[in-house]
Amino acid sequence: MSYLAGKIVLSVVAGAPNNGKGQQTTETPVKKTVIRGKTYPYVSAQAFRRWWRDTMAASGAEPSPVVRVGKAEGKAQKATTQGAPILYADDDLFGYMKTSKDKEGGTTVRDSPLMVGTFLSVEPGYPTSDFGVMARGVENPVLHSHEFYTADLAAPFLLDLPRVGTFTLPGQNGSGRANYLSEQAALGVAAAAQMGATTCVFRGQSALRLPLPVRRERVAVLLEALAELTGGAKKALHYGDRVPALIAMLPMAGGVNPLGFVIDGGEEQYSGLQVRAQALRDELAAWDGEWEAPVRLGWRPGFREQVRKEFETDAADLMDAGKVVIEHPRSMLLALAGQIRDGRHDAWFDDPAR
Score class of each variant (00 low, 15 high):
133 V>Q: 09
135 A>F: 00
136 R>W: 00
138 V>M: 06
138 V>N: 11
138 V>K: 01
140 N>T: 12
146 H>P: 02
146 H>A: 12
146 H>I: 08
148 F>I: 08
149 Y>L: 12
151 A>Q: 06
152 D>R: 00
154 A>W: 01
155 A>S: 15
155 A>W: 09
157 F>C: 02
157 F>K: 05
159 L>G: 09
161 L>I: 10
162 P>I: 03
167 F>S: 09
167 F>T: 12
168 T>E: 14
169 L>R: 05
169 L>W: 01
169 L>P: 02
171 G>P: 00
173 N>W: 06
174 G>L: 07
174 G>P: 04
175 S>G: 09
175 S>Q: 11
177 R>M: 10
179 N>M: 11
182 S>K: 06
184 Q>D: 09
186 A>K: 02
186 A>S: 15
189 V>Q: 07
190 A>Q: 11
190 A>I: 13
190 A>G: 14
190 A>L: 14
191 A>Q: 07
192 A>Q: 02
192 A>K: 00
193 A>E: 15
193 A>V: 14
196 G>S: 02
196 G>N: 05
196 G>M: 04
197 A>D: 11
197 A>G: 11
198 T>Y: 09
200 C>E: 15
200 C>F: 11
201 V>W: 13
203 R>P: 06
203 R>L: 11
205 Q>M: 06
205 Q>A: 13
206 S>C: 03
208 L>M: 03
209 R>A: 09
209 R>N: 05
210 L>D: 00
212 L>G: 07
212 L>Y: 07
212 L>F: 06
213 P>I: 12
213 P>L: 13
215 R>F: 10
215 R>Q: 11
215 R>P: 09
216 R>K: 08
218 R>V: 12
218 R>D: 04
219 V>C: 11
219 V>D: 07
221 V>C: 09
222 L>M: 11
222 L>A: 10
222 L>Q: 00
223 L>D: 00
227 A>Y: 14
227 A>E: 10
227 A>K: 02
227 A>C: 13
230 T>S: 13
230 T>L: 11
230 T>F: 10
231 G>P: 11
235 K>Y: 01
236 A>G: 08
238 H>K: 03
238 H>E: 12
238 H>Q: 08
240 G>E: 14
240 G>K: 06
241 D>H: 06
242 R>T: 14
244 P>M: 07
245 A>E: 08
245 A>C: 04
246 L>I: 13
246 L>N: 09
247 I>S: 00
250 L>S: 07
250 L>I: 12
251 P>R: 03
252 M>A: 12
254 G>K: 07
254 G>L: 11
258 P>V: 09
259 L>M: 06
259 L>P: 08
260 G>D: 15
260 G>A: 15
260 G>K: 14
263 I>A: 09
266 G>A: 13
266 G>W: 10
268 E>F: 04
268 E>L: 14
269 Q>M: 15
271 S>K: 02
271 S>W: 03
273 L>C: 11
274 Q>L: 08
274 Q>W: 07
275 V>A: 03
276 R>I: 01
277 A>W: 07
278 Q>D: 12
278 Q>R: 09
279 A>R: 13
280 L>Q: 02
281 R>H: 12
281 R>L: 14
